[in-house]
Structure formats: structure tokens, C-alpha cells
Design a protein around this nucleic acid. Sequence first.
DNA 1: GTCTCCTTGTGATTAATTTCACAATGTTAT
DNA 2: ATAACATTGTGAAATTAATCACAAGGAGAC
Lengths: 212, 212
Amino acid sequence: MEEGLVVIPKATISRLPLYLQVLTEYHHLGITLVSSEEIAQKLGITSSQLRKDLSYFGGLGIRGAGYDVTCLLEKIKEILGMQKKRRLAIIGAGKMGTALAGYHGLQQHGLEVKALFEIDKGKIGTTIANIPIYPLAELPDQTVRLGLEIAVLTVPVAAAQKVADLVVEAGFEAIWNFAPIRLEVPDNIIVQNEDLVAGVLTLVHHLSRKIG
Amino acid sequence: MEEGLVVIPKATISRLPLYLQVLTEYHHLGITLVSSEEIAQKLGITSSQLRKDLSYFGGLGIRGAGYDVTCLLEKIKEILGMQKKRRLAIIGAGKMGTALAGYHGLQQHGLEVKALFEIDKGKIGTTIANIPIYPLAELPDQTVRLGLEIAVLTVPVAAAQKVADLVVEAGFEAIWNFAPIRLEVPDNIIVQNEDLVAGVLTLVHHLSRKIG
DNA sequence: GTCTCCTTGTGATTAATTTCACAATGTTAT
DNA sequence: ATAACATTGTGAAATTAATCACAAGGAGAC
Ligand SMILES: NC(=O)c1ccc[n+]([C@@H]2O[C@H](COP(=O)([O-])OP(=O)(O)OC[C@H]3O[C@@H](n4cnc5c(N)ncnc54)[C@H](O)[C@@H]3O)[C@@H](O)[C@H]2O)c1
Ligand SMILES: NC(=O)c1ccc[n+]([C@@H]2O[C@H](COP(=O)([O-])OP(=O)(O)OC[C@H]3O[C@@H](n4cnc5c(N)ncnc54)[C@H](O)[C@@H]3O)[C@@H](O)[C@H]2O)c1
């Protein structure tokens, strides 16, 4: 395994959060060593796929025994770029914005929600889960002051593109978008669309194959 | 194109919700005809991929002109099994459950949230977005009475597996799971894991490639 | 230390997906 | 009606991903 030369396939990267999840489970249970077969079974994939995936980032396993849970967790976090903490802002303190602001799972993965932004005067000045809500107009200033990197878009779909423009102008590097619309942004801005409807429609598709 | 014999690739199916989203956008804008190139550009994919995908369900396009938006929307909805309405229950009326209960996007895709279930006595008997909150103990009875098919799991991770067991026993066909854990369920139960953390970690990975 | 057993790591193979390139076939203008 | 043009639909080729099968190497027993 030649370090530095290996290109990790996209398909492998896309499975890393999955591996992170089950390894975290094992870690919490106090399990320190786990075989590829065990993890694979839990995830419903083949053990050879898991081993091939892990092989891309060096021989981490112990032949005859399995993989060290802690060691593997560290490596996956490294590849996913999770060592550095990231500062987020949530734009739109509505139902979804409120849920995310109070979600501990983000904190646990090094994602710090530092601010919410709103246009509703009734919400501005209050807090959600101890996070202050600022007026949207302060976006450029607070972005610099707080060192915000990732914007979480939880505004109504009708406002989403306009808000995305503001977010880009304010200097954000990335957008985590919950509005069901394809945003148009410059090439250097990273957009991750979180399309919950897509998820449930996939489920519906399977369901209709099963029971019509 | 031989009807009935064609197997639609998984990769194609996974893109259908995406197509649905942009076609719905065009529909709202009153656009009736659209070329593969336009849609592809909007989605950041190649036009030949889109055409190949659409070719699996028969020649829907008009050579020299493009695709009829309404016609395409209908076909995609058919393939995804969206003609039939589906009845959902949300288990766990916390932050995420509340957000989903009040989300119009579900209704718009034929997904009707009929009930919420809780163990918190303070919440039982009240409503969220006009949807009644029942005690968890009533799950089996209400499932039959209301004809519930899909269970939305928005309970704390520590309770998720136990609740999943109850849901299966109550007769649900499918689970839309928001808890960050791999549920163990019988083979005939469809599980769709909605791992929001996976989404944002993918974003973080791209971010760390970009700015370190 | 040696033997046995277990599980990893990986080349080779097979399968799935994407891209390419262009014939087929429609539209629109005249 | 015909010509000029635009866009689809699709085999073939290229790329990417998943699976197989087994040699290599480490653990544990004695
Ligand atoms: N609720 C859900 O479960 C859910 C699920 C998936 C996707 N979404 C999407 O998330 C987005 C928000 O949904 P929601 O249910 O939270 O809606 P919501 O109406 O509860 O919240 C929207 C909030 O955004 C604020 N807002 C409006 N325009 C704004 C602007 N220009 N700048 C800043 N804030 C602004 C509003 O004041 C409101 O507080 C929508 O695009 C929706 O489609 C919601
Ligand atoms: N909040 C978010 O933005 C978010 C995002 C992604 C995933 N999630 C996941 O969704 C789940 C819920 O998160 P939340 O933030 O809404 O938590 P929450 O604490 O706000 O809500 C959980 C609710 O479930 C109820 N509950 C507990 N045990 C139950 C049981 N056995 N049966 C029925 N109800 C029960 C609680 O009374 C509470 O009302 C968690 O697993 C979380 O990891 C949440």
C-alpha cells in the first residue's frame, strides 16, 4: 500500500460515515477489537467490501484477530477531515432550524453551531439551546467575527436561493441545504443537499415493490 | 425498449427523487417542455446520463424538442410508487418529530402523517399541527385502526431498537429511521436510515480537501 | 518454538455504471 | 414539400465498483 499515491474511491468515502456509526456503537459498548465479518453483517454488506475499503488507507487490521476499534475510528475521522472543529450557522430558526440547533449529534462530531439568523423580529434577540439569534442583516459581520464556515439553510424554499446568495457573499465556504431546491452557487462553494423527501421516496419505492 | 423486461438500475432509481425535484420546479414555473441538457446542467450531471436513465422507462421524449414536464413527472411518480397515498406515524414527538409533523413537503408527496406516539405523559393527548399524540401503548391498536404503514422513528438512540421491535410487532411495513443506529429488524421490513450526520460529514470531508 | 487456527490484505475476475458518438426522428422555417 | 436544424435514444467503449479466492501473516495453545 503506497501512501500518498492511493486514490480513495468515491464509493468508499461515501461509506465512511456508516463505518463511523457502527464503530462508535462498538466503542460505547467497550468493545476494542472487531472483525470485518461482524461489522459487515451489521451493515448488510460483504466483509470483503469492508476490507477492501479499509485497505485503501493502509494495513490497519491485525491478521488473525480483527481491527482495533479506537484505531479505526481515529483513521476514519482523519480521512473525513474531522480533527478540526467547524463552526456552523443556521439560517432560518423555524421548525427544522430549531431541531438542528438543539441536536447534540453535531457537537459530538466537532460541529459547533455558533449562531442562528432570522428575519422574524419576534425571534431575533432570543436564543435556542443557548445559541443567539441574530438578524439576517448581521450575517456578513458575524461571519467574520465568529469565524463561521458552514451555513445550514433551513429557510422556506421561496427564500432559499436569495439567502444562498447572501451566504456566499458573506464568505461561507459551504452550505448544508435543507430546502428542496437546487441552489446556484459559484464553483468554489461546497453544497450538500439534505433531501429528506428523497429518503422517504426511496422507501416508498421499495414499499410499492413489496405490497403494491 | 421492451416493456416488462427492462430492469431499472439501482443507480437510476436513486436519481429519480432528484429529477422529481427539478421537474417540480419547472412545473411551478409554468415550463412545459425541457431538454435533457437543461436539466443536466441544473443537476451537475451529464445529459447523456439523464437520457439513458429516462430511456429505461420508454421513449418519453420528443426528438428535436425535449421532454414534456408533466408527462415526465407522472412517469417518475409512477415508478417511485407515489400514486397510492401512504399513512405514516411519527414515534417520538421531540424536536425532530415536531419538525416532521409540521412539514408540508410530506403531504405534498402523498405522505399523510396520521398519528404521533409518545411516552411523555405531558405530551400525550395534545396535538402537533393538528395531529393527535397517542401513548406508545396504543401503537398496535391504532396501527390497525388508522391503517398505518410507515413508522418514522424520532426517539432517542437509546430507545430506538426497542421501539423498532414494537413497531414491527404492531404490523408496520417500513421504518424511516432518524436515530443514528443500525436497527435489527426482520428481512421483510423496509428500513430507510436518514443519517443527517453522514450528510454533513460528507460536506466536512470536501471542506477539508479544499481548505485543510 | 512450533503448530494450528483465524482473519486480513489483495491480485484477478466479474458486474455495474457512466460516457461517447452518432443514427434516428422529430421540429421549424420557407 | 423540402431543407436545415435540434434533440432524443442507444449500442459500444471506457471507467468504476464489487466480489471472489487464497496467500500472507499474526494470535494463541501447548
Ligand atoms: N420541517 C421539516 O421537517 C423539514 C424537513 C425537510 C426539509 N425542510 C425544509 O427546511 C426549510 C425550513 O422548513 P421549516 O419547516 O423549518 O419551516 P419554518 O417555516 O418552520 O421555518 C422557516 C424559518 O425561516 C425564517 N425565514 C424566512 N425567510 C428568511 C430569510 N430570508 N432569512 C432568514 N430566515 C428566514 C422564518 O422566519 C422561519 O422562522 C424549508 O425549506 C423546508 O422545505 C423542512
Ligand atoms: N434534533 C435533530 O435535529 C436530529 C437530527 C438528526 C437525528 N436526530 C435523531 O432523532 C432522534 C430524536 O431526536 P430529538 O432531537 O427529536 O430528541 P428529543 O429528545 O427532542 O425527542 C425525543 C422524544 O422521544 C420521546 N421518547 C423517548 N422514548 C420514547 C419511547 N420509547 N417511545 C416513544 N417516545 C419516546 C421523548 O419523550 C421525546 O419527546 C434521536 O435519535 C436523534 O439522534 C435528531
